[in-house]
Design a protein around this nucleic acid. Structure first.
Length: 506
RNA sequence: CGGGGUGUAGCGCAGCCUGGUAGCGCGCUUCGUUCGGGACGAAGAGGUCCUGGGUUCAAUUCCCAGCACCCCGACCA
């Protein structure tokens, strides 16, 4: 009937991508902005998603030998000062606690009192305080390795916050490990990057490119930063996780040293690695469509939502008890090692409105159950990765449900991968490169560009020129071995050892 | 820190120029008709008009100051 299908989210992606993103966050009931600038309230649907991310990653961390611990929120200012590059990198975005008491002034207003002798910094990341702690723990090579992760919040006073993508306070995990040798620390750095890649691709259904950062983009204080980068639907890159090889920099500044097997006192080698609630933003922008969010089944707070359709009050009990039974039956099935998560939505709402609320939230499967279905012992299913709805025998659905969820998971990944490949180009000519990254209408930039695989001579000047001219940065030097052809730098024409990924970034 | 803008009901806004102490849409409550693609009608509830000062018989409206937030830039491992 309708000429163009009405979409649940307005504007659509192609009309105004940043606004679409904000609307999805809101309509999917994931989070909202708070009275505190740059800080968000994560709502139950969004937080459940984070809990699932945490649960699955935690299993992977434990499986690779790590344990969890917890370190303080506050860092003495002097600690942060010990690593010079680290200071430069974070000093501009630190929240500082200078007082520890409030007193009423003459007008009855509360004012800070009780000035601290040494200000405390709210952790922007915990290398320094953890390093100081580790220095006491490490005496002998027998104390190594230390393989610890912490789940925490951190604060970075960013100039321009974006919900989930760059908030002032965010939730994350940070792994901090100490090793006896350089090789072992490097292996750890690589291993955790692989964990992130596996998680991103198999759980978030978000294809990522692994590689290393250029000097310019490196973590302050790191010798090398490895990263996973994903392409969003506006073709910008999102750094989704980083794993840092810290060399002996932090070990030296915090004096993490031990007696080695030869009896000499030497500094240890450390790593750190983290992912944050930014991953949620990544999933929204990877999978979301014009009807809202689409949650990858493996991380979905609810896999299946049952929507009872009651047309006549006298049928209410029949329908609801059938739905209850179906729910129990489905919860007996396992998907990805855990029981299928089922929500029976019996809120007293208009059926259409109720159904759409779950579409916008991105629940993988919706089941509409009314007298018609009960009489034919079937279910009426809507899949979030497909349009339309269809009926199928109840028993068949129960038998197939894990397979259907797996299929949705696979479809999301394949679709995202195809999108990325479609918009990744080898470019060897600077003017073509510029065209690729220049919007047709600068007033209202449309979705354009993508990942450009181009040669780079490794000189930071060339990298900076591209950034200054086009706001394009080197996202990573890909680690895949099929990328070792030599060529000429896209900027200066000098010899280049390999192609790197250029893109606009979040 | 520069440049611009906005503060009025839970949310989004109008009213202000041309002062007379408030209105619209959504949401919310109740009732009825609806309900498998987002409903409709009726009746309701809900406001220190950002704060302080000034002008005035009278300020949401005009003037001054302050605060907060938003957008653009700078900045963003």
């Amino acid at each position: 009937m309708a000429k163009e299908r009405k979409s649940a989210i307005s504007p659509k992606r192609h009309e105004d991508y940043p606004e679409w993103y904000q609307q999805v966050v809101k309509n999917a009931d994931l989070a909202e902005s708070s009275p505190v600038r740059g800080c968000m309230v994560i709502k139950p649907w969004g937080y459940a998603l984070w809990e699932n991310i945490r649960t699955e990653l935690d299993i992977m961390f434990k499986a690779t030998g790590h344990v969890n611990a917890y370190f303080p929120l506050f860092i003495p200012l002097s600690y942060l000062q010990k690593e010079a590059d680290h200071v430069d990198g974070f000093a501009k975005e630190c929240a500082v606690v200078t007082h520890h008491r409030l007193e009423a002034d003459a007008d009855g207003k509360l004012v800070p009192a009780g000035e601290l002798e040494e200000p405390l910094v709210v952790r922007p990341t915990s290398e320094t305080i953890i390093g100081e702690t580790y220095s006491k723990w490490v005496q002998s090579y027998r104390d190594l390795p230390i393989l610890i992760n912490q789940w925490a919040n951190v604060v970075r006073w960013e100039m321009r916050p974006r919900i989930f993508l760059r908030t002032t306070e965010f939730l994350w995990q940070e792994g901090h490990t100490v090793h006896e040798t350089k090789d072992e620390a490097w292996d750890e750095t690589v291993k955790m990057l692989e964990v992130y890649k596996t998680f991103a691709e198999e759980y978030m259904a978000m294809p990522v490119i692994t590689g290393e950062k250029t000097t310019e983009e490196r973590f302050p204080g790191a010798e090398n930063t490895l990263c996973i980068e994903a392409m969003m639907q506006d073709r910008k890159a999102l750094q989704a996780g980083t794993s840092h090889f810290l060399g002996q920099n932090f070990a030296k500044s915090a004096d993490i040293a031990f007696q080695n097997r030869e009896g000499q006192r030497v500094h240890a080698w450390t790593t750190s690695w983290g992912v944050s609630t930014r991953l949620i933003g990544g999933m929204i922008m990877t999978h979301g469509d014009d009807d809202g969010f689409i949650v990858p089944p493996r991380l979905a707070p609810k896999h299946i939502v049952i929507l009872p359709i009651i047309r006549d009050d006298k049928d209410a009990e029949t329908v609801l008890s059938y739905c209850e039974k179906l729910k129990i039956e489905l919860e007996d099935v396992n998907f990805n090692r855990v029981p299928v998560r089922v929500e029976l939505d019996n809120r007293d709402l208009n059926a259409g409105e109720k159904g759409w609320s779950w579409v916008k939230k991105g629940a993988p499967i919706r089941l509409e159950i009314g007298m018609r279905d009960i009489e034919s012992d079937s279910v009426f299913m809507g899949r979030r990765d497909q349009q339309g709805k269809s009926g199928m025998p109840r028993a068949q659905f129960v038998a197939d449900v894990a397979g259907i969820l797996g299929e949705i998971q696979d479809n999301l990944f394949k679709k995202a991968l195809a999108y990325r490949e479609e918009h990744t180009k080898n470019i060897d000519d600077l003017s073509k490169f510029a065209d690729f990254f220049t919007p047709e209408n600068p007033e209202k930039p449309e979705t354009h560009g993508g990942f450009a695989l181009s040669h780079w001579c490794t000189n930071p000047n060339c990298e900076n020129k591209i950034n200054a001219d086009l706001s394009v940065t080197i996202r990573c030097i890909p680690s895949s071995s099929d990328n070792e052809e030599q060529g000429k730098c896209i900027v200066c024409g000098e010899k280049s050892p390999q192609r790197v990924i250029f893109a606009k970034a979040y």
